[in-house]
Design a protein around this nucleic acid. Structure first.
Length: 697
DNA sequence: GATCGAAGGA
């Protein structure tokens, strides 16, 4: 047979001149040259015309190109259906193709069809079909296949057992996976790697390390895949020692050219707190894919170096690397922490524009971002649009509603969550309890606290006790809160006492305030905020002398206020200010803008009640001469007391609104709509007072 | 042909 391939376009298949070459080296030729269905179609026509359709190897190569390279399962099935007696190899290719195309159900159907047609599966078939079960999380199906492998005599095949480990681990049965591993008489590196992968999917990081040590002891050589698994575990556990050992191994063995390996190394260093080492590795990479960028960005984000995370994201875009949903999760999480509302909104727009898949994780990150920036409506909107939601999404929603002053609505969603059979976890209850606290629902709070253990088997942690103290104290039941602390099964920490102390100011309870500070001094003697809080308790009942005394006591003890860092976002630009920092290029501009705004607000006939704020401001000016403008502005507004980590967001609308005839509306509405103040991780909305912290202005 | 990398909430 010596037929010229006249149907082949010369540019796609330049090397093929005669069909006689085709069966000899079909794989490389077809796999490498076929770029489109049209190419396949041409070869397919020839295979039929020339009778090669009867040649199993030619058909298999054609199927491989169609199902595995071009991933066109419809076309692959069409070819397959023309074959009169398909061999197991042909079935295997189709099964693999269905797995690759995330269609394991069809793979299983094909396997059944194979049995009906009395075609005996081989070890590869079992391996492929176990993978289908693994993707489907079909434990029962997997077990049936395992029984089948035993009967067919393939039970001891390495291929089968490796996938079996993977299948059991993916179905959450890590113990059975380990049993398969332990019972294997001969292990290969892949076997060990399958077990590492199993532990990785189950987040059993310690087990990865233990198994790796076993591997080293048994003098078994490891490979790049092993190192990637172990490095991931080192990152999760903060095991820098082993991580560095592997790092040295990689350098000594000249493996630094492997991008995947170095990406794991970057991730490990970042998670172990060596973010700058991670960065220098990242900078040295000759080529960076989206995973490498994402690893570095998430490294900064998790190290709370959010500014650098956002800067790197910008750089990534300049390099024209397309971010994926995972990149966006880290970027949005950084925006949430920084309160970078405009940047985060842009990210949301970007996600929609690029049709980046709204996964549960991405959706939840978006929700969290909106909630933390005070835009709970947008957070809810994202939640409603999410195709898949999990306990984390519901928790973020409840938490977001609660911290934005919508406690009752948060509890309604908690009921919804229960109706839909989503099992709440310990963190969900923190949201639920803080919702009760914000809504002033003391009895409900008490009931939820009991219920979390009684009905859900969740032991309350110190954070849950803290929420209860907050519920009692905020509701004005200071004594009950104190009794509750005294009856706690664990030692109260500073946060608990601080919660009580903060409420003492609102409810003007000097005695409990003093007791709280006594306890606080034992736990954290140098925490400046606690002294300020007690001083405010005194001031709240008019004992200004005592207030001053506390502050001078603080000075005598040499306790300094933490330098404040604030940020202002104006039209998408984020400006950070530290105490004593007057050098920010935008500071004068911002100050001027807000001055003007103040004038307009005043000329609209509104005089803010800033007496208390002014008192504090003068105190602070004397004590630590805080000079950064953002905090001054906040003080001027009477919105907040100076405290580190404050974000004041001045949106574009605020300026517009002072110009756009909104002056007829009450100024509190303008404030409510336009100004949101974030103090650390708590959001403050100002209606008549702040619904988060009971502060009135 | 079986194994591997980055990810959200308090």
């Amino acid at each position: 047979m010596n037929v010229t391939l006249s149907l082949m376009p010369a540019k796609t298949l330049p090397k093929i001149t005669t069909i006689s070459e085709f069966p000899n080296n079909p794989k490389t030729l077809i796999l490498e040259q076929c770029k489109t269905i049209k190419d396949i179609n041409q070869i397919h026509t020839h295979v039929i015309k020339t009778g090669l359709i009867l040649n199993p190897s030619a058909v298999e190569n054609l199927l491989e190109s169609t199902a595995l390279v071009l991933r066109s399962m419809d076309y692959a099935l069409a070819i397959f259906n023309q074959v009169q007696q398909p061999q197991p190899e042909a079935y295997n290719i189709l099964i693999r193709g269905f797995n690759l195309n995330q269609n394991p159900e069809k793979a299983i159907l094909l396997f059944k069809q194979m049995k009906e047609n009395c075609i005996e599966p081989d070890k590869y078939t079992f391996s492929c079909i176990l993978k289908s079960c693994s993707i489907l999380h079909g434990l029962q199906e997997g077990k049936q296949i395992q029984a089948h492998t035993m009967k067919s005599g393939f039970g001891s095949s390495g291929f089968v057992q490796n996938t079996l480990i993977h299948m059991y681990a993916n179905c959450g049965k890590i113990d059975i996976a380990r049993r398969v591993f332990d019972e294997m008489s001969e292990r290969e590196v892949i076997t060990w790697n399958s077990m590492f992968a199993g532990y990785t999917t189950s987040s059993c990081w310690e087990e990865v390390i233990k198994l790796f040590q076993e591997m080293l002891k048994s003098d078994f050589g490891f490979d790049v895949v092993t190192m990637i698994s172990v490095l991931t575990a080192c990152g999760r556990l903060g095991n820098l020692e082993l991580g560095e050992w592997l790092s040295d191994y990689i350098v000594e063995n000249g493996l630094t050219g492997n991008l995947n390996l170095i990406t794991s190394l970057i991730d490990m260093y970042a998670k172990c707190g060596k973010i700058d080492v991670a960065r220098s590795l990242f900078d040295k990479l000759p080529r960076r894919d989206v995973v490498a960028w994402s690893a570095m960005i998430s490294g900064y984000s998790q190290a709370s170096r959010c500014r650098e995370a956002l800067d790197l994201f910008q750089e990534m875009q300049r390099e024209n690397i397309e971010p994926n949903e995972i990149t966006m999760v880290s970027v949005l999480s950084s925006c949430a922490v920084m309160g970078a509302f405009e940047i985060g909104k842009w990210c949301h727009f970007f996600v929609k524009k690029k049709r980046i898949k709204l996964t549960v994780t991405l959706g939840t990150a978006l929700m969290d971002f909106y909630a933390k920036c005070g835009s709970v409506e947008n957070s809810l909107d994202v939640f409603k649009k999410m195709p898949v939601k999990n306990v984390l999404s519901w928790t973020v929603l409840i938490q977001g509603l609660a911290s934005n002053g919508e406690g009752r609505k948060a509890l309604e969603y908690f009921s919804q969550m229960r109706i839909r059979n989503i099992e709440p976890n310990d963190v969900t209850f923190i949201g639920v309890l803080s919702a009760c606290s914000h809504a002033g629902l003391i009895d409900e709070g008490r009931e939820f606290f009991v219920s979390m253990n009684r009905d859900y088997g969740i032991d309350p942690r110190i954070e849950h006790y803290g929420c209860m103290v907050d519920i009692f104290a905020r509701g004005g039941f200071i004594i009950e809160a104190y009794q509750f602390i005294k009856n706690m099964p664990m030692e109260p920490n500073a946060v608990i006492w601080r919660t009580l102390l903060a409420s003492c100011k609102v409810h003007k309870n000097v005695e409990m305030g003093e007791e709280s500070l006594r306890q606080l001094v034992k736990l954290e003697p140098a925490h400046s905020g606690d002294y300020i809080l007690l001083s405010n308790v005194y001031a709240s009942v008019g004992r200004f002398e005592d207030a001053t005394k506390i502050r001078s006591e603080m000075r005598q003890k040499g306790i300094k206020k933490t330098p404040g860092c604030s940020s202002i976002e104006i039209e998408g630009g984020l400006h950070e200010f530290f105490a004593e920092d007057s050098a920010h290029p935008k500071s004068v501009e911002i100050y001027d803008a807000v001055e003007k705004m103040m004038k307009r607000i005043k000329s609209a006939g509104y005089v803010p009640n800033i007496a208390e704020a002014r008192l504090d401001a003068e105190e602070d000016e004397k004590e630590s001469s805080i000079s950064h403008h953002s905090e001054k502005l906040a003080i001027a507004f009477g919105l907040i007391k100076t405290s580190p980590g404050t974000t004041i967001r001045i949106t574009k609308n605020l300026r517009v609104c002072s110009d756009c005839h909104i002056a007829t509306k009450t100024i509190s509405k303008v404030f409510n709509r336009e100004i949101v103040v974030r103090d650390r991780n708590r959001f403050h909305h100002f209606k008549d007072g702040c619904c988060s912290c009971n502060d009135y202005w």
